[in-house]
């Protein structure tokens, strides 16, 4: 088991193997499953991601039961078609994919939690945009997921990834870092550059709180996935350009864990603080649940 990013990077250098390959080998030894079974299982995850991206942006889109989220992936798609986006089409395609997936999640559709359901839009958001941008085939997309999983496991082994223990930095932050490191690898960067991308991506989202309005995975969760993809693409490009984070990835992960533990309860998925405590959010909560949302059901 690779416990630290530095270990994983060193192993890739010594063995002269890509990180996804190290990950598959580790998974085979841990689970005793065959390489083919592991590969197929990841392929099924990829299919779930593709289906959510398509569903969220098709027709009128999807809408959650509360009506708080939905239909905005479609708005983004129509906006992109006009060809005048400010951030450029790669970024906005990734944003559309992330929003589509997260809207499907909020509408109780099927998603692949990467690493969590609340942050499920970020990784596929980046991956399916790179598919078009870099003309990736299916095998390369599956490789991307194994690379992201390798870095994600190290984050999860050294820091909590639940909003209730670490805040949104641990969910969208982790997802963004996993996407950034895998994006570097699939674009031909070195394992060292993947590690830098991870460090930059997490550093940029440190402190992000988990403050879901009415306790629902809708506001601001869907749009936080949009910032997750933007941050991942920026961090990946910076690492590929040769920029370094100076603070190593492993230390950044520990910093995130400590920040998470220091966050007050109200900002750790209780729906009590931050945006959830604004007057509008309180009105939304009352509209949905009445005055005593946490009383006995």
């Amino acid at each position: 088991m690779y416990m630290h990013v530095s270990e994983l990077v060193a192993a890739a250098q010594v063995k002269q193997q890509p990180i996804y390959e190290l990950m598959i080998t580790q998974e085979m030894s841990v689970t005793h499953a065959s390489r083919d079974d592991i590969w197929q299982a990841m392929g099924r995850n990829l299919d779930v991601m593709a289906a959510a991206i398509e569903k969220g942006a098709a027709g009128e889109g999807v809408h959650s039961k509360t009506g708080l989220t939905g239909g905005e992936a479609v708005l983004l798609k129509k906006y992109r078609e006009k060809g005048h986006t400010l951030a450029g089409d790669t970024v906005m395609e990734a944003v559309q994919n992330a929003v589509a997936t997260s809207e499907v999640n909020a509408a109780m559709g099927v998603v692949c939690a990467t690493p969590t359901a609340g942050s499920a839009g970020t990784l596929p958001g980046v991956l399916f945009t790179l598919k078009d941008r870099l003309d990736l085939n299916r095998d390369q997309m599956i490789q991307f997921l194994f690379t992201a999983g390798a870095f994600g496991m190290i984050i999860a082994n050294n820091a909590g990834i639940a909003g209730a223990t670490g805040g949104c930095q641990a969910e969208v932050g982790s997802a963004s870092a996993m996407a950034a490191s895998a994006a570097v690898a699939i674009a031909g960067g070195t394992p060292e550059q993947s590690s830098e991308a991870l460090a930059i991506a997490i550093s940029n989202l440190l402190g992000l709180v988990c403050d879901p309005v009415a306790g629902l995975v809708e506001l601001p969760c869907v749009k936080r996935n949009a910032i997750g993809v933007g941050n991942a693409l920026i961090a990946a490009d910076m690492a590929l350009a040769g920029c370094t984070n100076k603070i190593p990835a492993d230390e950044v992960i520990v910093a995130m864990d400590k920040i998470g533990k220091n966050l007050p309860d109200s900002l750790r998925e209780t729906g009590l603080g931050g945006l959830a405590a604004t007057p509008t959010a309180v009105r939304i909560k009352e509209r949905i649940f009445g005055h005593h949302p946490t009383a006995q059901a």
């Binding site: 509408a107 969590t116 499920a120 995975v217």
Partner: peptide, 19 residues
């Protein structure tokens, strides 16, 4: 591994729904 990339699940929250 497949608890990081996965599980495939019905939304909306992995810790509060799938968990």
């Amino acid at each position: 591994m497949f608890d990081i990339i996965g599980p495939v699940m019905i939304g909306p929250s992995s810790s509060h729904t799938a968990g």
